[in-house]
Design a protein around this nucleic acid. Structure first.
Lengths: 333, 333
DNA sequence: TTGAAAGCGCTAACAA
DNA sequence: TTGTTAGCGCTTTCAA
């Protein structure tokens, strides 16, 4: 910028004014400045600008999520990016892989880079390490899972009620022996979905049978094995509720292997691409990751714009998508 | 940092030394500084640090790709993130949606933010707008598509040969009437795949028939319609080569509708989740997006570390994944 | 309308 | 080992 000023024969401040379109510069001078800037391929340094500016905004927000390459996270990221883009804000995203230490370390890195706001899909069970930042005015929105030991906004899927309605749907086809297959129980959403399952059993006066409940399934393979094992029982389930994407896929694999895919009903939590092209097509409780991301970003920007109402928790509803696998009646055995 | 220095009763520079672990500070002083920093919740400002530092590195790289929420892009992003993380570098990613203007605008935004390097899946047919940056030492690696009018490294899938081998596979099952369904022909990868298709026809002395070649399919629906139309022809194809993910899915939908999925062979370019669970399971020419991202990031960091060898173009091979749909023989009609 | 001087938070270069 | 001074590229403040 110094060089531009020299070449145009004006002061530093005049160049600054032209670059930032502050007006109040004679047309002729402004022209000279622009020509000089072009000639020198001048690109303003946004970091230096932010450093000196009153508001100190970097026009960057941080986003921490499970894994940018899983479809749910990727869609949330994309929705946030779209909202941010409209405001000229860029997104620094990081994958946590459910590692508690990574969450903390990356969050602090983002703070050191002075992001204007933070959106986090938390992995740990204690976000109090962000207390200081919250107090010093950093806006933080939590997504998919509520923060713990920290007061902040959150945007969540209706996990419990979604799971309940999925199980309900199975009961309506006459099932009373419904297995539950879930992700790591320490993940709040997994626990919520399990509670929804229990809610449904309760309302139908079905006794809980631990033998057809499996938690902590972290991969397609693990879910496949767990599903197979269910059918070695004396009284195997007539229906399966799968609490997560990969678990659903594992269950499908196992049912295929056992050639039970047309006899055992299946409802999965969370939709996935091509679920409609499988045979039978898979009935799911669909989340709305696009909407979740969009709401989270809008909430964050509202806060950054000065909205200081008490913390909100927005619940994004789920939808039961009926496709076939969930409508297989009980008693075809 | 000033405040920390005051509280600890030392000079600014001493605090700086402690924060950056430069050693050469008496243990007792260092301790006092750390306590003061903790007490004040001091977080160093990385942007200010970069501004003053000799190397001026922001420890940030920029990544422009088609759409962070599509599986290919998301996997590339994740692989790049992993390589960058090891070096304490964060990734600013942006989706281009094949919009030429967005590519240019976002690239310049990233330059203004002084990213240390750039990885781009280009959308436009002219990257000369980056000439200035290249000359001033910015390292840029192109992914999936080669840069045009700019000399820079690139990492590409072997699109032409991959497509050729996919079509070859169909010929080996006796097919001589193979349709080609492709993405926007203006996208270099789509054109390369089409050329691979032509290569294969040529080597088998099969005449090109424009009636069973459709380009510019941009969605599942468009591909589905185009596929259906093929079977209204007097001489419909006995096999289909689909040049892209969504096109493959559209073709599957159409074949199902027509109940031809067990009679018409299908090979798709690019793998997708659950391709193995469809019936018949889908034979594909698989790319390796993880490897592509990893290679691109490593190449970029090598360059940033001073490697100044002439531009390289790394080709990542594809793999034919045989699953069933591609092995349906000709003549079951 | 224009510019000079100060300083954002930090590190380089040098001195003590 | 510690501190002092200057200055990274920019905007603020205030004066001309």
């Amino acid at each position: 910028m110094k060089d531009v000023a020299a070449l145009a024969g004006v002061s530093l401040k005049t160049v600054s004014r032209v670059v930032n379109g502050e007006g109040a510069v004679a047309a002729e001078l402004a022209d000279r400045v622009r020509r000089a800037a072009d000639q020198l391929d001048f690109k303003p340094n946004r970091a230096a600008s932010a450093l000196r500016r009153r508001d100190g905004k970097t026009r960057t927000i941080g986003l921490l999520l499970e894994d940018v390459s899983n479809p749910f996270s990727a869609t949330v990221l994309r929705a946030i990016e779209d909202v941010a883009r409209k405001r000229g804000v860029l997104v620094l995203a990081g994958s946590l892989d459910e590692e508690v230490e990574t969450e903390r370390a990356l969050a602090l890195t983002l703070v050191e880079r002075r992001v204007d706001g933070l959106i986090i899909v938390p992995t740990g069970s204690d976000q109090s390490y962000l207390l200081i930042e919250r107090r010093s005015g950093m806006q933080i929105v939590f997504v998919d899972r509520a923060p713990r030991l920290l007061d902040a906004d959150s945007v969540l899927s209706d996990n419990r009620d979604g799971a309940r309605s999925g199980c309900e749907h199975l009961s309506q086809s006459g099932h009373r022996r419904i297995a539950f297959l879930g992700d790591l129980r320490s993940i709040a959403t997994a626990e919520d979905r399990f509670q929804g399952y229990l809610d449904s059993l309760r309302s139908h006066n079905i006794a809980v049978d631990e033998r057809i409940i499996v938690h902590d399934l972290r991969s397609i393979d693990a879910a496949q094995l767990a599903t197979r094992a269910l059918f070695d029982l004396d009284a195997p389930p007539t229906a399966i509720f799968a609490g997560q994407n990969l678990v659903t896929m594992g269950a499908i694999r196992a049912l295929r292997q056992l050639d039970l895919q047309r006899r055992v009903a299946l409802v999965g939590f969370d939709d996935f691409l091509l679920a409609d092209l499988l045979e039978p097509a898979v009935t799911v409780v669909a989340q709305d990751p696009r909407r979740i991301g969009q709401v989270a970003a809008e909430l964050l920007f509202d806060r950054m714009d000065g909205d200081s109402a008490p913390s909100r928790s927005v619940v994004v509803p789920t939808t039961l998508v009926v496709r076939g696998s969930g409508e297989i009646p009980a008693g075809v055995h």
